[in-house]
Write a protein that binds this DNA or RNA. Structure first.
Length: 210
DNA sequence: GCGACAG
DNA sequence: ATCTTGTCGC
């Protein structure tokens, strides 16, 4: 697939994004997804499902693969989506929400990894990125404070302070959830700066490459 | 033309 | 993404 074809694919799928929650959305099992890279082009896609009430891990899956698409800003999903979908297929527990390592609507074409993964799986999803794609004001220092993340004059996500005195993370809607809910769900996954979902899937993926 | 650009 | 445990500072 060429970058031009990838962009066309994003434009084709973008209308399928539903940036609101089903009335009956109840989040108990949350999946964190991440891809780790080796020195060569091997990679590991990892997913960890935890019970949001206890933060206990209830299911995990890892797959080994190769990087078949380069990292290009705006086309990140075409590199990470294949191993992540394969990992999701290995789960025994169906997650209620996917927490992705990257952007959702906070994307130049409003179709970041979290949107793509949400649409492909038809599961609610949110993007949690460590660096922003857009402009934002610094949220105040206390845990839970937020500011808008703005791109092209529209609010595409939020900067969320997940712990006092740390850099914010950048939350955007992926699919089948609204921004308020997305921020609330992410915040309750955070013991330190990054959500436990992200931390555990990251650890699982890198361990698999050893 | 130049800089910016998730992981 | 990756290099990476203990250590410095609030």
């Amino acid at each position: 697939m060429t970058p031009e074809e990838a962009i066309a694919e994003q434009e084709r799928l973008r209308p399928l994004v539903r940036p609101w929650a089903d009335p009956d959305l109840n989040v108990r099992y949350v999946a964190g997804l991440d891809v780790s890279y080796a020195d060569d082009d091997r990679l590991a896609g990892a997913v960890v499902v935890l019970d949001v009430e206890t933060l206990y891990t209830v299911d995990t899956a890892v797959v080994l693969g190769t990087a078949d698409f380069p990292y290009l800003p705006g086309l990140f999903a075409f590199r990470e989506l294949p191993p992540l979908v394969r990992a999701l297929e290995k789960l025994s527990v169906t997650p209620d929400l996917l927490v992705c390592d990257g952007q959702g609507l906070a994307h130049p074409r409003r179709f970041g990894l979290a949107c793509h993964l949400g649409v492909v799986t038809d599961l609610p999803s949110v993007g949690v990125a460590k660096t922003p794609m857009g402009r934002f004001e610094q949220p105040s220092e206390e845990r839970g404070s937020v500011t808008d993340l703005v791109e092209d004059g529209e609010v595409v996500g939020r900067a969320l302070r997940t712990r006092e005195g740390v850099k914010p993370v950048f939350v955007s809607v992926g699919h089948k959830i609204d921004l308020d809910r997305a921020c609330a769900e992410v915040l309750r996954l955070c013991v330190v700066r990054l959500p436990e979902t992200t931390r555990r899937s990251d650890a699982l993926g890198r361990a698999q490459l050893r």
